[in-house]
C-alpha cells in the first residue's frame, strides 16, 4: 500500500487507462495546456499531445455532445466538466442524450463515456459555483452516477468507469483533492454499484458518500470517545444504489442517519431512508435522520457558507438523537 492524494489517485487512473487503451482520450475546458483547473491532468498534455488531451471551447453542449458522438462511434472519451455547476448548461446531453440514446434506438450501439465533474461547496465560490446536485443526476435511469470518498475508491472506480461500455457521471469534490489515503500497489479496479462498509461499529449506521464520508469519519471518532461506535456505509455509487450493506448494517444497529452535502429535500438521504423503511421496517428503533445542507443558495461569506454546509457537529448531534 502507498499513501497518495485524491488528486494523484484520479490522475493515476486516467494515465493508466490512457496507456492501456488508445481509444481513451480526454476533452474539456483547460485540461491540456493549463493542466486542469484542479491540476488533475497536469503533465498530460506534454505526455500525450493535443490529439489525446483536447482543450475545448467553453461550450458545455459541444463538450458533452461531441463526447457522446465520439463514444457512439467507438472511442472512449473522458469528458471533463470544469465544475458540476456547468452540467446544467449541458443538461440535455447528460439527461436526454447520454442516458437515453441507447435505449431509444433499441440497443444498437454502446456509449462508453465518462463525464468527470467537480462539485461541492466550501471554497467560497458563491451560489452558482458551489452546488452538490448529485441527486438530480441520480434521479434519471440510463446513466450511472459514481462519487467516491477515498483515493483508493476514486482510482479503482474511475478505472472501471473508463472501461465500462455505458455512460457514467463521475462526481469529485472540490475540497477533497488533498485528502490522502492508502491505495493498493499496482493494477486494481473496483466494481461500480457496490456500497462499502468503511468503518465497523455496533451502535448506529451512518450512510454517506464523497465529502460526507470525510465528515462522518471525524464524527465517528468523536462519538467513539463517548463510547458510541458508528458503522459507516459508503454508497460510492448513487445509481444504481446498492442497499445490501446498508440494510445488513441497519438490521444490526437498528438506527441510522444519512449524511450528504446536497440539500435535504428530495435528496439522497430521502431515498436511502425510504428504502430502509420499505425493506427493513421491522428493524427500525428510531426515526432515520438526515444531515444535509440548509435549504439556501450557498453564500460567499465563509461563516455563512459553513453555517449552510453540514458539519461534523451536525452528524454527532444527529447520532446522539437517534440513540436517545
Amino acid at each position: 500500500m502507498s499513501k497518495i492524494t485524491m488528486r494523484e489517485a484520479i490522475s493515476q487512473a486516467l494515465m493508466e487507462e490512457m496507456d492501456r487503451d488508445a481509444a481513451v482520450f480526454i476533452m474539456g475546458e483547460e485540461v491540456g495546456v493549463w493542466g486542469g483547473t484542479y491540476a488533475v491532468t497536469k503533465g498530460f498534455y506534454d505526455k500525450y499531445g493535443p490529439a489525446r488531451i483536447k482543450d475545448t471551447p467553453i461550450a458545455e453542449n459541444a463538450i458533452i455532445g461531441a463526447a457522446i458522438g465520439a463514444a457512439m462511434v467507438g472511442q472512449r472519451p473522458v469528458a471533463e466538466l470544469m465544475t458540476i455547476n456547468f452540467a446544467f448548461s449541458a443538461m440535455d446531453y447528460i439527461v436526454n442524450q447520454a442516458a437515453k440514446l441507447r435505449y431509444m434506438f433499441g440497443g444498437q450501439f454502446t456509449l462508453p463515456l465518462v463525464i468527470r465533474a467537480v462539485g461541492g461547496g466550501g471554497r467560497q465560490l458563491g451560489a452558482t459555483h458551489s452546488q452538490t446536485p448529485d441527486a438530480i443526476f441520480a434521479h434519471f435511469p440510463g446513466r450511472r452516477v459514481v462519487s467516491p470518498g477515498t483515493p483508493e475508491d476514486a482510482k479503482g472506480l474511475l478505472k472501471t468507469a473508463i472501461r465500462s461500455d455505458d455512460p457514467i457521471l463521475f462526481i469529485e469534490h472540490a475540497t477533497m483533492y488533498q485528502v490522502r489515503g492508502e491505495v493498493p500497489e499496482g493494477e486494481y479496479v473496483i466494481p461500480i454499484g457496490k456500497s462499502k462498509i468503511q468503518r465497523a461499529g455496533r451502535d448506529l449506521t451512518i450512510i454517506t458518500y464523497c465529502k460526507g464520508l470525510e465528515l462522518s469519519f471525524k464524527a465517528a471518532e468523536e462519538l467513539s470517545k463517548e463510547g458510541i461506535e458508528a458503522e459507516i456505509v459508503d454508497l460510492r455509487t448513487l445509481r444504481p444504489l446498492d442497499m445490501e450493506p446498508v440494510l445488513s448494517s441497519f438490521m444490526k444497529t437498528n438506527r441510522a442517519i444519512v449524511v450528504e452535502e446536497g440539500w435535504k429535500s428530495f435528496g439522497i438521504g430521502s431515498e436511502v431512508a425510504s428504502r430502509i423503511y420499505e425493506q427493513a421496517f421491522d428493524f427500525v428503533d428510531a426515526p432515520i435522520l438526515r444531515v444535509a445542507q440548509k435549504e439556501v443558495p450557498l453564500p460567499y461569506n465563509r461563516t455563512l457558507e459553513q453555517a449552510a454546509l453540514p458539519q461534523v457537529a451536525d452528524i454527532t448531534a444527529a447520532a446522539r438523537e437517534v440513540l436517545k
Binding site: F25, A51, N61, A62, I64, G65, A66, A67, I68, G69, A70, A71, M72, V73, G74, Q75, D92, Y93, N96, Q97, L101, F105
Partner: peptide
C-alpha cells in the same frame, strides 16, 4: 437516427466526426 430535441443532435454530429478524426 432521427433526433427529437431541436438542434440537440448537432454537437453529436461533431462528435461522430471527432471520433472518425481520432480513428
Amino acid at each position: 437516427g432521427g433526433h427529437a430535441i431541436v438542434g440537440g443532435h448537432l454537437p453529436i454530429a461533431s462528435g461522430f466526426a471527432l471520433g472518425d478524426q481520432y480513428a
